[in-house]
């Protein structure tokens, strides 16, 4: 394996969401929901508090329905592994406006820090490539994260990136936890954006 990752997950997510424009965001339950909330609550974030394994699928349905918006799924390695087949489903649809960023700390952070499969032998970027997502890479520096953000904003996807981060938990920053509220305010924000 490569050197121990040093990137701090909150800095990575801040870089992904910097000057986000009309970006629509879907998060995976647990750490990445807290990360995106920490970066600044926004009604155009659809935070998952459940449905482990479905973050990419939510992003896919949204990207297909809103082809003029960029959709970014920010999820963790454990959540991605549970729904890894959805990468093949994404590749079959090939939505140009969808990007997936996996914040990979090689741990199940919410359940005691147990190692995920990426800590052993699994390479999620290779799995995404094998599923048919050709724009797929593993990133280890903030410069690469910023380049990824610029790239998926400019170039048709789908895009996939694994971003290796330090294993330390960053603490909980809680967005609203009522799924009905999160759902309705997301849709209202989208509608308001389309009117303006």
């Amino acid at each position: 394996m490569t050197a121990t990752p040093t990137l701090e997950r909150r800095a990575v997510v801040d870089a992904l969401l910097d000057e986000r424009g009309d970006l629509l965001v879907v998060t995976g339950l647990g750490g990445t929901t807290w990360d995106v909330a920490a970066s600044g609550d926004d009604p155009r974030n659809f935070y998952l508090w459940g449905g482990m394994g479905t973050a990419v699928s939510v992003g896919l349905g949204l990207a297909l329905a809103q082809p003029r918006h960029r959709v970014l799924v920010i999820t963790g390695d454990g959540e991605m592994l549970m729904g890894v087949g959805s990468l093949a489903t994404v590749a079959a649809q090939a939505p140009g406006n969808l990007a997936i960023a996996v914040i990979d700390n090689e741990r199940y952070g919410e359940t005691g820090g147990q190692l995920t499969h990426t800590a052993f032998a699994s390479d999620l970027a290779a799995m995404a490539r094998g599923a048919g997502i050709t724009h797929s890479a593993t990133l280890t520096t903030l410069a690469e994260v910023r380049a990824f953000r610029a790239h998926f904003t400019r170039v048709a996807g789908p895009h996939f990136a694994v971003i290796k981060v330090a294993s330390a938990n960053a603490g909980m920053v809680l967005p609203p936890r009522d799924g009905v509220l999160i759902k309705h305010r997301f849709k209202a924000a989208l509608a308001a954006g389309q009117r303006s």
């Binding site: 879907v26 659809f46 449905g51 479905t54 973050a55 990419v56 699928s57 939510v58 992003g59 896919l60 349905g61 949204l62 990207a63 297909l64 329905a65 809103q66 729904g83 959805s86 489903t89 759902k183 997301f186 849709k187 989208l190």
Partner: peptide, 9 residues
């Protein structure tokens, strides 16, 4: 997931 995302969109 797909149907939830579709509804959001």
């Amino acid at each position: 997931g797909v149907l939830a995302g579709a509804w959001l969109g």
